[in-house]
Computed example of a mutant assay.
Amino acid sequence: MADWDWSEDQYVQCLHDERRRFAWVMRRYGGLDATQAEATALRQYPFQASDAPYRGLVFHDDAWHWAMLRIYGERYWTQHPELVEPPADYRALD
């Protein structure tokens, strides 16, 4: 189990931020409406109790990567090299 060494508030904020980014990508690139995108983001980033094994492991890659995998599948970067790095609009979400 990884020691993320963050407070509950920090975990919840990170979860919120990644959900927001993931939903943005699903709307922009995945063609989902806002409701569908938010529901998909909640499934991708469920809240995990503080004692859950591997809590927060999903954060080892950012929302951009997880959304691209969902939309384009494994090895999306080989078929869509232009999507390896997120655009400025995505980075501006921070």
Rank of each mutant, 00 (worst) to 15 (best):
D89E: 13
H60L: 01
V84F: 07
A52Q: 09
L83D: 03
S7L: 05
P86T: 10
C14H: 05
G31V: 12
I71T: 13
R75K: 15
P86Y: 11
Q10F: 04
Y11M: 00
E82C: 05
S7I: 02
S50Y: 06
W4V: 02
Y72S: 11
A41S: 03
R19Q: 02
T40S: 15
E85V: 15
M26W: 07
V12M: 02
W4I: 06
D89C: 11
L69N: 10
Y90M: 09
L32A: 14
Y54H: 12
D94E: 11
L93Y: 05
L69Q: 11
R19D: 00
Q10W: 04
G56M: 02
R20K: 14
D94S: 10
G31E: 07
R43T: 06
T40W: 10
D89K: 05
S7T: 13
E85D: 14
W6Y: 08
A88K: 14
P81H: 03
D62F: 08
A39R: 06
W64M: 03
L57P: 02
D61M: 11
L32Q: 10
R43I: 04
A34T: 13
T78V: 13
M1I: 12
R55Q: 00
W77I: 05
Q13K: 08
A88Q: 14
A39D: 04
E38T: 06
G30K: 07
W6G: 04
M1T: 14
R21P: 02
Y54D: 05
W77P: 06
D3G: 06
D17K: 10
H80G: 05
R27G: 09
R28I: 14
A88W: 12
Y72R: 14
A39W: 01
I71F: 11
M68V: 09
S50W: 02
E82F: 12
Y54N: 08
R28K: 13
Y29F: 15
D5L: 10
W6H: 04
V12C: 03
R20P: 01
D17F: 06
I71M: 11
R91Y: 14
E85L: 14
H80V: 06
A88E: 13
G56P: 02
A49W: 03
E74D: 15
D62T: 07
D5I: 03
E74S: 14
D61T: 10
R19S: 00
V25C: 09
A52N: 04
E85G: 10
Y76E: 03
